[in-house]
Design a protein around this nucleic acid. Structure first.
Length: 427
DNA sequence: CGTCCACAGGAATCCCTGGGTT
DNA sequence: AACCCAGGGATTCCTGTGGACG
């Protein structure tokens, strides 16, 4: 046995039963508790594909962690499974020919969020060798679209395109993609395309061209949030698989994870994260039992990590804007205006030797920070004294300042002159 | 009741990047 | 080499506006 800094850690036995991915939200289990009816109704729509026809387009709505993606991918996996088996021998009603003609394409529109990108990604699913790749930039849109059609139509098939986080795509690049994809069937000779759109918000269809809207929403499903009891079942199911024995888990741990996640609009993802992180914390503390105490620690850790992660990945100028906001509130100005933030930002740019961006641009960056949940910014009118945003940080100040100062291109600053000046002017 | 502040936020345009085609 | 194409970031110019002050 090699003596190293790892030795003592390796020897401490893991609470997990090997595969800790079971507790990750991306894992799709054999059973999806409390989603059976949705699986069933989606299956009844999708079964058309197995007969070689085009299933209706489907729109699925529901908040994060309500099982939308899991249900869709569950069915995708079932079809893949059918493809591997020889079904017609078992059941003469089964038509293996059509089963093998079904292709799924999954696209997460949060990652691929442009007209071009979506088309390129779909097109590249149907290639035989590397050289046929559609490049990630360069071609005119028209050519990408033609290549896509040609490839799909190469042999008869039913293509099911899943567009996850569809609302992100619409808000960033409009409905051109959906317009093209939803009318593609009229231009295909032997293949058929069916769309499954997954969205967090119910409202996004308002921005769609009415024709697209009607073609896309042939079928609609709405996934409600899980309640605490349902979350308990989901966690229980996974715990059975992920742990050596249930004695390792304190009775109340699952209940607590469920309850906390139920408060957050019934987010199963959150519940699973809580459970996984609290187990990891317990492991690190060399405890053989996970307790509610660990869950509270996990809750804290998740919140901190989210903020840190969000701040660290910000572009430099956004970091400076955030820095300006944090430093200004340190000087006692709890609620800032856009002008004040911009003044602070300009000063920080000077100190770091960077060219400052225009106020118009910074206004947009402020909106982005607001959407990320790092700050609260709401427009308010101060009468004669103008109409502006009222800006306030909504994250722990000192910790976040520390995260920002880790960026080498930003010069650490203790206080901002411009804000002190505004303060004295107001007095 | 009108003025007028300090911006909000839309639209057009430009620059740049990473690629293609002629 | 010269030029087309999509997309992102940024700038420029712009019109719009809630409400305290006079």
């Amino acid at each position: 046995m090699i003596e190293s800094i790892f030795s003592s850690h390796i020897q401490s036995k893991s609470i997990f039963k090997g595969d800790r991915d079971i507790l990750r939200p991306s894992y799709i289990p054999e059973e999806l508790p409390h989603r059976e009816e949705y699986i069933d109704s989606l299956a009844s729509i999708m079964v058309t594909a197995l007969r070689g026809d085009r299933p209706s387009n489907v729109l699925i709505f529901g908040k994060t962690g309500t099982g939308k993606t899991a249900v869709v991918r569950y069915l995708e996996r079932e079809v893949e499974r059918l493809k591997k088996e020889n079904n017609s021998e078992l059941d003469p009603n089964f038509d293996d020919y059509n089963v093998h003609r079904v292709e799924y394409v999954y696209i997460n529109c949060e990652v691929v969020d442009t007209h071009y990108g979506v088309m390129k990604n779909i097109g590249n699913k149907f290639i035989h060798n590397w050289s046929e790749q559609i490049p990630f930039t360069g071609w005119p849109m028209e050519k990408v679209y033609d290549a896509l059609k040609e490839r799909i139509d190469e042999e008869p098939r039913v293509v099911v395109i899943i567009l996850d986080e569809l609302d992100k795509l619409i808000s960033k690049s409009g409905d051109a993609v959906l317009y093209h994809l939803s009318k593609i069937n009229s231009e295909l000779k032997q293949s058929k395309v069916s769309l499954i759109g997954i969205s967090n918000s119910l409202k996004f269809t308002e921005f769609l061209d009415p024709r697209v809207k009607s073609r896309l929403g042939e079928e609609k499903m709405i996934f409600p949030p899980y309640n605490a009891d349902q979350l308990k079942d989901i966690l229980g199911e996974r715990v059975k698989r992920a742990f050596e024995s249930d004695t390792i888990m304190d009775e109340d741990v699952i209940s607590l994870c469920s309850a906390l996640a139920a408060q957050e609009h019934g987010d199963a993802r959150r519940a699973l994260d809580l459970l996984r992180i609290s187990t990891e914390i317990a492991e690190r503390e060399r405890k053989s039992q996970v307790t509610t105490n660990h869950v509270y620690k996990a809750k804290n850790k998740i919140e901190q990590d989210c903020v840190r992660e969000a701040v660290m990945t910000l572009p430099t100028h956004s970091k400076l804007v955030m820095y300006s906001i944090l430093l200004s509130s340190k000087n006692g100005n709890e609620k800032l205006t856009t002008g004040e933030v911009y003044a602070g930002y300009e000063e920080l740019c000077g100190k770091s030797g960077l060219d400052s961006l225009t106020q118009r641009r910074i206004a947009d960056l402020i909106s982005e920070l607001d959407m990320l949940g790092l700050i609260h910014a709401r427009v308010k009118s101060f009468g004669r004294r103008g109409r502006t945003r009222e800006i306030q940080a909504s994250v722990p100040r000192l910790e976040t300042i520390r995260s920002i100062e880790e960026d080498d291109s930003i010069v650490p600053v203790n206080e901002l002159r411009s804000v002190i000046q505004t303060q004295t002017r107001l007095m």
